[in-house]
């Protein structure tokens, strides 16, 4: 069975470490916040100027001046801080953020990422994504392995405009977990979802990739 959105977030949360400063993208990456282990302190950075992002507010605590990068009303955890966009991206571009978890439209076999526009169709902009992939220490992409029509999203080369080149360190999809091997510049299949075979992954992937000798099943 392929993983659902929450299971994807849960698997991604296994990459968090105590004391990490983390930026979560919009969509499934945001759900990762729900699976931070209770004994772990993880500082969530929101690029609009908040470090130490907390849960959504109760109705009476809603504050129009306190939002996240997805423009949702949020709260701060004890010890949170506010700062300007320049300081925020100083954290991101200066390599002070440990981990970024973001979504993707396409990922190439060399770890290139495309997630900000579809020429002639979808115009939204890159927001902070180009800064994040260029400056954060580790970059994990969380996405469905194929698009709604069943076409592969892990492909030989991106067809859409790039967000960054050679920037995806780890790929977590509804079918599997892949790790980038810097030496061969290919992803290595590390884990498959319960009930998903290597052939299932292969049939939905057009990218060249390797298979780990220690291939295992995703544990949630």
């Amino acid at each position: 069975m392929p993983l659902d959105r929450n299971q994807l977030a849960k698997r991604a949360a296994q990459e968090l470490r105590d004391g990490f400063y983390v930026n979560l993208g919009i969509g499934i990456p945001t759900l990762v916040a729900n699976y931070v282990p209770a004994d772990m302190t993880v500082w969530l950075q929101s690029e609009n100027g908040l470090l130490g992002m907390g849960a959504f507010p109760t109705e009476d605590a809603v504050d129009a001046d306190l939002i996240n990068a997805g423009k949702q009303t949020v709260t701060g955890v004890p010890g949170h801080s506010f700062f300007s966009s320049a300081d925020s991206f100083g954290m991101i571009r200066g390599g002070h953020i440990d981990l970024a978890i973001l979504g993707a439209m396409e990922v190439s076999q060399e770890g290139d990422l495309a997630n900000w526009m579809i020429p002639g169709k979808l115009v939204k902009g890159m927001g902070g994504a180009m800064d994040l992939v260029a400056g954060v220490k580790r970059r994990i992409v969380v996405m469905d392995h194929a698009n709604k029509r069943g076409d592969a999203k892990v492909i030989p080369a991106c067809t859409l405009p790039l967000t960054g080149k050679h920037c995806v360190d780890m790929l977590i999809t509804d079918l599997c977990v892949m790790l980038m091997d810097e030496t061969s510049r290919r992803f290595v299949l590390m884990e498959v979802a319960p009930g998903v075979s290597v052939d299932d992954v292969r049939s939905r992937t057009t990218a060249d990739f390797r298979i780990s000798p220690n291939l295992s099943e995703i544990q949630l």
Binding site: E47, S84, A86, F89, R93, G128, D131, A134
Partner: peptide, 26 residues
């Protein structure tokens, strides 16, 4: 890019005509 925009505005205000960044490379 959002960080580049923030820095472009900051630089403009600080009398810095241009700067270098990794963001957007390639």
């Amino acid at each position: 890019p959002q960080g580049t925009l923030a820095e472009r505005l900051r630089a403009g205000g600080a009398g810095i005509p241009a700067f270098y960044t990794r963001t957007g490379l390639a």
